[in-house]
């Protein structure tokens, strides 16, 4: 229940943040990698640093993460097949061999079929996610956004202490 409430809070705050639809959408596209790929991997630390450092919507990133976690679980068999196919491709063997024997690169776990498949899957999906999210946010703000902003629920959410922390990372 708490997770659901946090998700609703995140959605509301993100959709009404001062960021442009493009910033929210970029945040969601970057955040989706945290959900689509196994979390405890080096590439996710890099992506998280980018989310924090780049002027994208942090809430959008968290929203993307939350939304894509279940999708990631669902798509694991597909990612496994994609990754296994790529790792087994004879034409790519010399590339993988070179990476596998290069310092630090093996710590990315690129040689795991689910990690590789999910990262490749995210690279393919990132652009559609970005455009779909940008269109959705712009459409929301143009239609029902103002009515939600005036609602009691929105005011209750934005008045919470958590929101103050969130404001630190909101896009300027």
């Amino acid at each position: 229940m708490f997770t659901l409430l946090k998700l609703i809070q995140s959605i509301i705050k993100t959709l009404h943040s001062e960021g442009t639809p493009g910033q929210v959408a970029l945040g969601m596209a970057l955040g989706s990698v945290l959900g689509l790929t196994p979390l405890m991997n080096v590439h996710n630390l890099i992506i998280f640093s980018l989310i924090v450092l780049l002027n994208v919507s942090f809430g959008g990133a968290m929203l993307g993460w939350a939304l894509f976690v279940p999708i990631g679980f669902l798509l694991d068999p597909v990612f496994d097949r994609i990754g296994a196919g790529l790792l087994g491709a004879a034409s790519l063997r010399s590339l993988w061999t070179s990476w596998y024997n290069t310092p630090l690169v093996p710590y990315t776990n690129f040689n795991n079929s689910v990690v590789l498949g999910s990262v490749v899957g995210w690279l393919v999906l990132a652009v559609p996610i970005f455009f779909a999210a940008r269109w959705g946010v712009a459409r929301y703000r143009a239609t029902i956004g103002e009515r939600v902003r005036q609602s009691k629920l929105y005011k209750a959410v934005t008045a919470s202490q958590v929101y103050n922390w969130y404001r630190l990372f909101r896009p300027s």
């Binding site: 979390l39 405890m40 790792l87 993988w96 795991n112 079929s113 990690v115």
Partner: peptide, 17 residues
């Protein structure tokens, strides 16, 4: 077999050189 985790383990491939 890949590492045990909440997500699918998948397969980890070693590429000796």
């Amino acid at each position: 077999p890949g590492p045990k985790r909440l997500r699918a383990s998948g397969t980890t491939v070693r590429f000796p050189k």
